[in-house]
Simulated assay, not measured.
Amino acid sequence: MAESAPNPIKEQPFIRIDAVSKTYGDFTAVDNVSLHIRKGEFFALLGGSGCGKTTLLRMLAGFVAPTSGRIWIDGQDMEGIPPYDRPVNMMFQSYALFPHMTVEKNIAYGLKHESLTAAERRERVREMLDLVQMSSLAGRKPHQLSGGQRQRVALARALAKQPKVLLLDEPLGALDKKLREQTQFELTNIQYKTGITFVVVTHDQDEAMMLASRIAVMDKGSVRQVGSATEIYEYPNCRMVAGFIGSVNMFDGEVQYSSESAMTVLVPKLSASLTVKPDHRVLPGDKVGVALRPEKIFINREKPTGARNALSGLVDDLGYFGKNSLYRIKLSTGAVLSVSVVNAHRTGESERVAQWEDEVWLSFDPSSVIILTE
């Protein structure tokens, strides 16, 4: 994912969002959000419909004024500054290309009010065409382009004015799955080459994890967690984040024993006490959430020897997805656990690790169990 790229990110916040709220009558769209985004960062606002992410993006752009709080960009207070005077540009989900203009003229359109000579304008357009690999299609009109090509033109037009910040509102939503995956790599490469701070809004968790160096997970107008893809997936700080990011098995539990290096948690739904390697200290008697990712669970026909956590059940359902198979295992308590198995070898249906109604054993490492206190 993008977090491994050697982006030249500085420590001082380039965008400061301080205690920003937006209300519409009795409805609160954004609720006291504070975020610091660094220069040169690819930052994602991630959440479901109605979580406030698009409203927050529109406040950054200047299309919507905060009800309270302040926004700074590159040290400048944005209060009262209209969209056209902000050091930002926005790429919309619809791309909003002019159908009667060629690719070249679409890209050049935003430069007509810039203090550039005709030669400088032509050179800037040429640079943008090269950047998005559209030079050979400069004379075409939008209806002659594929969805991915139109997306590149919209990106080039947004970048042509050399904004300090590029805002992207669900930029890949109109593309099919394979093209979306390809374009994600292209976007991260372009962001790295230009060094421009990108802020993207998306409801697609995979897209956010692929694109962004850091992600803010939003829910009901608030930011629930900020971190890298690894941090929010492997170390969610609450049940909402654990449930929203990826697939997860989640149950209620009660801490029976707790020390700095080990913990035992009773999970009634599993009729078992689980051994856990704690990430943070909780006390005996505390009520907690117990989360376990499907890919962290091992499935076997025989009871595993030496496993700290082992449960038995029957295969209630299974699905084959090519690269992996998903098993739903029903325990004697009625609880169902999802287990994901990578199909690392070519096998037939009869060679699967288990079939419907087979009795199997599940095991998992103590460090794979996530304990949630919120």
Rank of each mutant, 00 (worst) to 15 (best):
G139P: 00
T194A: 01
V153R: 02
L292G: 09
E234V: 14
L318C: 06
A118L: 10
G319Y: 12
G334D: 08
E79W: 13
V132M: 03
I371C: 09
D365W: 05
G110R: 03
L372M: 11
P294A: 05
A354G: 00
Q144R: 07
K330D: 01
N7Y: 15
Y320S: 12
P284D: 02
I196K: 02
A229L: 04
P268S: 04
H113L: 12
S49P: 02
L168V: 03
D219P: 04
S49V: 15
Q76A: 10
V290C: 00
T54S: 15
E374M: 13
A242S: 04
P366T: 01
L137Y: 15
M90T: 15
G289C: 08
W72M: 11
K177S: 11
E260M: 09
L314I: 14
A335I: 02
T197E: 03
H345L: 11
L137T: 06
L266K: 15
H100N: 13
Y192G: 10
T102H: 11
D279K: 14
S68T: 14
W72G: 03
T275W: 01
A307K: 08
G25L: 00
R281G: 12
D18H: 09
P8C: 13
L56Q: 08
R328W: 15
F198T: 06
A118V: 02
S273D: 11
M210D: 00
H280C: 06
T194Y: 01
N106P: 01
L314R: 15
Y320G: 05
N300W: 08
D316H: 11
S222T: 15
L372N: 02
Y327L: 06
T347M: 05
T305Y: 06
I107Q: 03
M128V: 07
L57R: 11
M210S: 13
V165W: 10
L318E: 06
E181F: 05
T275Y: 01
Q144Y: 09
S146V: 12
E302L: 08
L331V: 06
E123W: 01
N300Q: 15
A44N: 04
R16T: 15
A344D: 12
C51E: 05
Y235C: 05
L187F: 03
H203S: 06
P278V: 05
P268Q: 09
L270M: 02
G334S: 09
D176V: 03
A96F: 09
L45P: 04
L97Q: 06
M91Q: 12
L179Y: 08
K277D: 13
G313D: 00
L129D: 10
T67Q: 09
A291W: 00
S68Y: 07
D219N: 13
V200A: 05
R239S: 14
K220P: 00
Q191K: 14
I9W: 07
F92C: 07
A65N: 13
E359F: 08
E120G: 09
A44P: 02
L318P: 03
K177D: 07
I196Q: 06
I297F: 10
P66A: 13
M240Y: 15
G147A: 01
F198W: 04
H280A: 14
T23V: 07
N309G: 04
K164H: 15
E41H: 09
D18Q: 14
P366L: 12
V336T: 04
R346A: 14
